[in-house]
Design a protein around this nucleic acid. Structure first.
Lengths: 353, 353
DNA sequence: TTGTATGCGTTATCAA
DNA sequence: TTGATAACGCATACAA
């Protein structure tokens, strides 16, 4: 209704100074260059007129937008809201804004979204969609784009990253199960083309080996996605091939949820017949039926740290890329219990070393 | 590394035309004005150089940014990710981008965030933080800002809104409980300064009245927030004042979750002793212990519709503000059961009409 | 069909 | 300490 919003020139004229002076007075960094009294009058007039600087004009002039592109697979995956909140909280504190997009795991969509964010001249990118082989990120890195990955990493070196200590988390999960007397432990692996899937699976194999356990190849089933549906299908295959298993280490909580559903459908009780450990400690995991034993990953803090890393990178583009490793911690709840008796190892074709 | 990104002028020079021609060729709307063959050469060169239009410059020139501010209370509240996804999905399809901010229910923070989005020259706003009395929105409306509220409305007329039919949803909840034989039905009301809280509470009173039930005043407890914590505290007060109640209609699922926690803590079984109905059908409500009977609200669709409404408003600023009312539907699960015998109405001081 | 010129609102450089 | 001026990259009215 009131027409166009007031510009710097409007404020300047209201005070009777040049717009350059108004610009200096309103900018904290240059405020010292202007007479305190005039500065005060300019500030007052700006407030009175409801002046808000035009970020587009400023960005065009300074080639900085204080906007950061944030790429996630899907906001409705409960893993990501805490990460995004962490990012936003830290960015906000520094006057930056997150530009959030979903890629749905689709490479074309990701390219399109990334390109859009580039057209908006995002100052940098926080990427939660990293795959181990990721041409788009490689190209961006080569162009000198400020980049940080969070939660997942790329095999390509040179990109700062914030991840949780998944190897240690997996070790805690396996250790918990062996301490409960389990030896027929299966693994519902996450997709192996992303670092979390590969790292957790490798750690699982390593831990089993170190514990002197030799599970048959069929006891490790790779899920096609980090979803309940994929977890359920993988569990069906697993139980078909290895009916004797008494425990499952799931690639993440959604896969674990799928496992719980399939176990229930096949009339197997969790945790009485089969123990299940998840990964992430997603929101409300403690309210599930049964409450989920899982490896807690500090998602909010991962978001905070990734934003911090990116902000540092914008200040010092030449600094060596750091990787921040945050601790993961097993949270024991109701989905794990001592191994049931009467399931000798041989029944599942497993041999102890 | 490769220096600054290519501009329109770079593309134009590579082809040997003026940048105005390049602009026209690259813009779908003006492409017809340029020789098809030249247009092709320009398009090719643009792709080869990796040209991406500078949205800042374009926005400065056109005073349109194809960016929409989205205000939500808190992304980690499971209610909002589906709404935001709905918004993003529809905006994306029209080449718009969502600028997402969290207000954490803090009015100062909300003003600051809103101001930042204005400085980024968002073309309009989708507001999920509406309170019944909301000066900020009133001012924005008076300024002619394009505005849509989602999930909640403002008492102030003139702002298009997308909400679910909460009165009907509440009626289904109460009807379900009375059909199960409950008459001592309590209500854990949401905050009354937001429309969802007020509407559901009013509907609850109305339904009880229509059913000939006259619950004592203490059986309606207002929660200070839509949180598990607030729900738990309210439940404690409720059970102290009205120990005889056999059913609870909660203001939303988080409040219901708090009720479940407090009931369990007091040794009362849900649903055997007390039935609980939630509101929203938040993600994984079916996996809770017990699976939650709740009123499903189509959150993703609410997001889609709110984006649609805003886009329409940008095209036709003068059109009358519409309110879209989406259907809510009771989903019966495990947290409701027939009323236990042996709790005569008089025990709770309730009288039938 | 194409080129020229101008301005969007800001900040930075240079003079005064 | 302040003012004048230019430029960021684009789209458009106007001229050719």
């Amino acid at each position: 209704m009131s027409g166009t919003p007031p510009t710097l020139d409007d404020v300047a004229r209201a005070v009777g100074v040049h717009k350059a002076t108004a610009s200096r007075a309103l900018n904290p960094a240059t405020r010292s260059q202007v007479n305190p009294e005039t500065a005060r009058r300019i500030t007052t007039a700006a407030r009175r007129l409801g002046y808000v600087p035009n970020t587009l004009a400023r960005g065009l002039r300074t080639s900085r937008t204080t906007a950061i592109g944030v790429l996630i697979p899907d906001l409705t995956n409960p893993l990501f809201p805490p990460i995004v909140r962490g990012i936003q909280d830290r960015l906000d504190a520094h006057g930056y804004t997150a530009l959030l997009v979903n890629t749905d795991g689709d490479e074309d969509r990701e390219r399109a979204q990334f390109s859009d964010l580039e057209s908006r001249r995002a100052d940098g990118f926080i990427v939660a969609t990293a795959r181990r082989v990721h041409p788009l990120l490689a190209e961006a890195l080569a162009r000198g784009t400020a980049l940080v990955t969070v939660n997942r990493t790329t095999d390509l070196p040179g990109i700062p990253a914030v991840v949780s200590d998944d190897a240690d988390g997996t070790a805690q999960a396996v250790g918990h199960l062996t301490a409960l007397g389990h030896s027929l432990i299966a693994h519902l692996a996450g997709p192996q083309d992303v670092s979390t899937g590969a790292v957790r699976t490798q750690a699982f194999r390593h831990c089993m080996d170190a514990a002197g356990l030799r599970p048959p190849p069929e006891s490790v089933v790779v899920c096609t996605a980090y979803t309940e549906q994929a977890g359920r299908e993988a569990t069906r295959r697993l139980l078909g091939a290895c009916p004797g298993i008494t425990a499952i280490v799931a690639g993440n909580d959604l896969i674990a949820l799928g496992a719980l559903a399939e176990l229930a459908a096949q009339g197997r009780s969790c945790p009485r017949d089969v123990s299940v450990v998840g990964f992430n400690d997603m929101p409300f995991a403690d309210r599930f039926q049964p409450p989920l034993t899982t490896v807690r990953v500090p998602h909010h803090e991962m978001g905070v740290q990734s934003a911090q890393l990116l902000l540092e990178r914008l200040l010092e583009p030449q600094a060596l890329p750091r990787t921040v490793l945050l601790p993961a911690r097993l949270v024991v709840r109701g989905s794990t219990a001592p191994a049931p008796a009467g399931f000798p190892d041989r029944a599942a074709g497993i041999t102890r070393a």
